[in-house]
Design a binder for these strands. Sequence first.
DNA 1: AATTATATTGTAAACGTTTACGAAAAACAA
DNA 2: TTGTTTTTCGTAAACGTTTACAATATAATT
Lengths: 329, 329
Amino acid sequence: MPVTIKDIARQLGISYATVSRALNNKYGVDPQTRQQVLETAQSLHYRRNDLARGLVKQRTATIGLIVPDITNPFYPEVARGVEEAAHEAGYSVFLCNTAWEQERELLYVRLLAEKRVEGLIIAPTAQTAETIETLLTGQIPVIYVSDTQNNLHSSFIAIDNVRGGYLATEHLIQKGYYPIAYLGALEDSLTNEERCTGYIQALKQYNFSEEPLLYIGSYHSQTAYQIMCERIAESNVPRAVFAVNDLFALGAMQAVREHGLRIPQDVAIVGFDDIPLASFPEIQLTTVAQPKREMGQLAFAMLQQRMTSPTSPPQRTLLEPHLVIRKSS
Amino acid sequence: MPVTIKDIARQLGISYATVSRALNNKYGVDPQTRQQVLETAQSLHYRRNDLARGLVKQRTATIGLIVPDITNPFYPEVARGVEEAAHEAGYSVFLCNTAWEQERELLYVRLLAEKRVEGLIIAPTAQTAETIETLLTGQIPVIYVSDTQNNLHSSFIAIDNVRGGYLATEHLIQKGYYPIAYLGALEDSLTNEERCTGYIQALKQYNFSEEPLLYIGSYHSQTAYQIMCERIAESNVPRAVFAVNDLFALGAMQAVREHGLRIPQDVAIVGFDDIPLASFPEIQLTTVAQPKREMGQLAFAMLQQRMTSPTSPPQRTLLEPHLVIRKSS
DNA sequence: AATTATATTGTAAACGTTTACGAAAAACAA
DNA sequence: TTGTTTTTCGTAAACGTTTACAATATAATT
């Protein structure tokens, strides 16, 4: 029912090939007919059908971006980075949210592949690269962001999570806090694992022989809060906690403060990500910063590189983390 | 280059129509051939081309969602709502960020129309419905979310912003705070205008004859902070401020606290939206709550209704706002 | 005026599906 | 057996573009 290129052609009594040429202002069409085409296109409210166009051109100028949780301020930030760079380069982006469900992540990969996106940027929920790669069989280039995927043949851009975890923990150690707990999430998230590894490394490095204190829950917004509440209830509160991300840190903060304990006098807290709120006056969360927006931009740049020359070797960028010390520690 | 339905047909020595039927498990294909088709599809890593499919079926099972700022925690929340509902109904969603630029909003509308999305949900940056409607000429149903667009023939779901502004201001008045400033953004945002109207109405209602105190800046993340800093610098601080949204309120809070003033003893603050952080212990922001997730879900439900019966009259839902009183006032 | 070069247009195939319609084959009934 | 119904499959058109190639019209050259 919508108006097509043929309607314009019919109205003007010319062939639709000419209309197509005029619309894409190609070389070799009379300026006058072009003008006419443009005008009647306007008056008929013509809107090009990108499905048809994509089909013949074998291009969609579209990429997919898959994130685990758009509600975590970290991701919108990198999303904006990606989106800006993509837009700059004439691409539009499909943004998908997996809600930390692996199954959904794979579903979206399939879906986006079927929509013929030209590239994919994924902030994975878990170690799922293997599955994704076999799913795509190299048809569509992928960049993993904020996760190394431990995978030798995939491209990624991420921060050195192990080092970040190490820095955070070292800082707490040097401040003299003890014991230090690690507040994290499901083990199948590589990010979580790595940060935890950094934590353990630091403990080892500074000769703490005791077992590391691992508080592990699901990646739900309330988990950190609940876990800390439980610990407080059983008056089993660690002197400091290093949280896998700022949202967890804030959850812990909330629990601690609601129970009348003070930060950092009673409990010190450090997070990871440096979301905008971390610097807020009454929060002042010490945290490991990530250049979120830039990571997004870079991810797109890397993807573009792989889209234009798919045979080039995978690129792997590991950024150096940077500890921002504030009042919470 | 990617494998098509014909490759499967060729390999099995059958026609590609049969392959199509098998793949879409339609009635009337031998179970055995179907099995074979499925198997070779798998082994060849076949992936259906949704461009071609959409072209012939005249359906894409895709909608567009346009928001002004994915970085403002309000929007991810409604985005999740629509995404969930859409996913439930078998639709995928294109999420686009306009960065509060009207031009970009229109660009995305065009782009999405060209991609043949079946519906559009827009959280508009301004009073742009008129333009959008003429752009789309009724080809694609649109639901405006969180903004009434003042427009008699468009569908929307929003909160009663005037009433919300009124409630917030009334609350501050009844607490005895005076003077009360309104901290808002560009005037071409209807949301902003309406909340401001509510503010003024409340002042009138309670017989404040003075001019309303309007602090207006751009929709940038730092504006609220800067405006308040200036006021403080010139020691011209209002007793209370009602901010157009929680992000602005937080910016004001930050400025106030950084200058050693206390909330609410020196300056009372109320916001709008009730983003997750508003309830945080050391923030405790009084605010006008919006059912964000639900608004998203409802928006999709409304859209679906309009997609299935495009001739039905536009739907207009105005939700009742609800004041959440916390310690900031 | 005839010839050649150039600018403009039309024809038709292609992109990868779905699907109406008819043909063939298989199953059933007589 | 033959006829009839049912199941399975193939042919071809359609979706709305782009584009190589051929055809025509126009302009330039001699």
